[in-house]
Design a protein around this nucleic acid. Structure first.
Lengths: 200, 200
DNA sequence: AATTAATATTACACTGAGTGTAATTTTACA
DNA sequence: TGTAAAATTACACTCAGTGTAATATTAATT
């Protein structure tokens, strides 16, 4: 997947420490410039200069410009999976996911999420990548569900659960932006999952 | 949206006729080359030369290289909406969409769909755009649903119906590719929608 | 038919993302 | 201290996409 396995969380030697610092400098500089001048108007030269590295080195850390934005959102999937594992398995899969999702998404700052969302909306390719990352999360979630509720005959059902769970997150996030943060994400998620059960 | 409104289906003068021919030549050349040498290895110069136009003229017809691929898949949304309008409105929204979707998707050739899908899988940006187009279809469908079942209080529910309908199409298409065409898309769609109702 | 307006096509030059390569520097480790 | 691995850089290159302005073609008008 990505080049930067944040999962490497052991023995932070000098090299690893520097690496993380550089990574942080790049994302910080990138986000700052994106917000300041817009996504397209910010060139990789700008970012590299602001982060104190060469343009070529940027590509040592990221595969593309939009990965800066995506790296913000990419951790969420793993967190949901971790929370899912802690759920009891004598409840329905959709219930377990619902609980995990609400637990994870609740503490996220509405303001920050909305800011990132606004940035992504400005560029078609980035927007597309973001949507694609939802599908990636769906796959991650599906794998975790299969692990928790094994059995070949359940697969189709679990694919569906993953699909509508991630869909519910997306709809809730969209609602958050539409409402401009009137209600919290946790509230919106609870609403959406509730409406989901009602609709079928 | 796109540059090429195929919807302009009146009075085909010389200009309009030529325009459509050129459009066709570009997509034909593009698809042929993509299949022949792969998406990334095919440059816009290749396509332009093969289509008998200048590189600059390509951008008069398309905004980007990937639009060639996307133009193949973009009509489906409108067709589903058209089929939805013909459904009775005394059934549940999800039922109406289910019927419309199966009616539209059934006649599509499995082989062709799988070929396009394979091509898209080869490039991350294209893949992303494709996923994004699903979300676009979702919006189109949602608008149509709102028109058929008005009322501010139904909106959340209809958003969900649109989400899981498009999701069901996507899962069915994925299953088609996974099974390598063992079952038809119509069959898979029926299965998925059925499993959907069972899962909640 | 001649004139004019709109649309289509092209050439040219440019920016910026992303890659290949090879050389140099920095860190890890024996 | 020496050496292997990883990080950083310079340089040159390809290709997608844009701006501009000039030319060619089709449509519309009188």
């Amino acid at each position: 997947m990505s080049k930067n396995s944040t999962a490497t969380a052991k023995a932070p030697g000098l090299r690893e420490r520097k690496r993380r610092e550089t990574l942080q400098r790049i994302t910080d500089a990138g986000m700052r410039l994106f917000i300041e001048k817009g996504y397209e108007a910010t060139t990789l030269d700008d970012i590299a200069t602001a982060a104190g590295i060469s343009r070529r080195t940027f590509f040592y850390y990221f595969d593309s410009k939009d990965e800066i934005l995506l790296s913000m959102q990419s951790t969420m999937g793993d967190m949901i999976v971790a929370a899912l594992r802690k759920q009891p398995d004598n409840i329905r899969p959709i219930e377990a996911v619902r609980n995990a999702v609400i637990e994870i998404c609740a503490p996220f700052s509405s303001q920050e999420m909305m800011a990132i969302d606004r940035l992504m909306r400005a560029n078609a390719v980035v927007q597309a990548r973001k949507q694609a990352s939802y599908i990636h999360h769906e796959r991650t979630l599906f794998d975790a569900l299969c692990e928790k509720w094994p059995g070949k005959d359940r697969e189709t059902g679990l694919r569906i659960v993953a699909m509508l769970s991630i869909g519910a997150i997306r709809l809730s996030t969209e609602a958050l932006n539409r409402e401009e943060g009137k209600r919290s994400l946790a509230e919106l998620l609870a609403d959406t999952f509730h409406a989901l059960e009602r609709e079928l």
